[in-house]
Design a protein around this nucleic acid. Sequence first.
DNA 1: TGCACGATCACCT
DNA 2: GGTGATCGTGCAA
Length: 181
Amino acid sequence: MTSLDLGGSVDAVARRVLGWRLVSTVGGVTVEVMLTEVEAYGGDQDPASHAFRGRTKRNGSMFGPPGTLYVYRSHGIHWCANLVTGTVGDPQAVLLRGAEIESGRSQVEARRGRQSYLTDGPGKLAQALGISGDLDAHLMTNPPLILCAGELPDDYEVEATPRIGISKAVDGRWRFTAGTG
DNA sequence: TGCACGATCACCT
DNA sequence: GGTGATCGTGCAA
């Protein structure tokens, strides 16, 4: 596979990864999705970032090399997946919020226990792909979770909006969505 | 050792 | 559209 282009500022990367594909083979089944919604988190310059107050045991993988997966627990019960960008020691990450299922939908439905609202939230997306805490710090060029660069279909448009679900730095336009308008 | 908080989800009306 | 559930982590004393 070709190397992933994760260079540039975190918001530039966030916009770039829209349309990229995520292939999960967790549990021996293949689930493939196309990213349609992400959020950029800018590390030590971003009060909303987990890494804002420095490196801790939880966010350690956020300080790893680009392409690292950072998985954290939200509200004690849900898993959320982030793609680490930037350079080693520069904690920048892109939160994977939403995606479109390209293949393996029946597997996702079984994993989620329902057949609608499958990937419209960070926790749901993580569950749909079989991502859990033991995939934290996983490098996304290797199985069982592989990130592949790709292009958005022509009928998709990228939109930048304020981030949601957080209490700080809500004014930044660091949330990127891709839709057919 | 104890306390406060959170990048959410599911269910209710 | 609004509200309750739930628990690990980080920080202070």
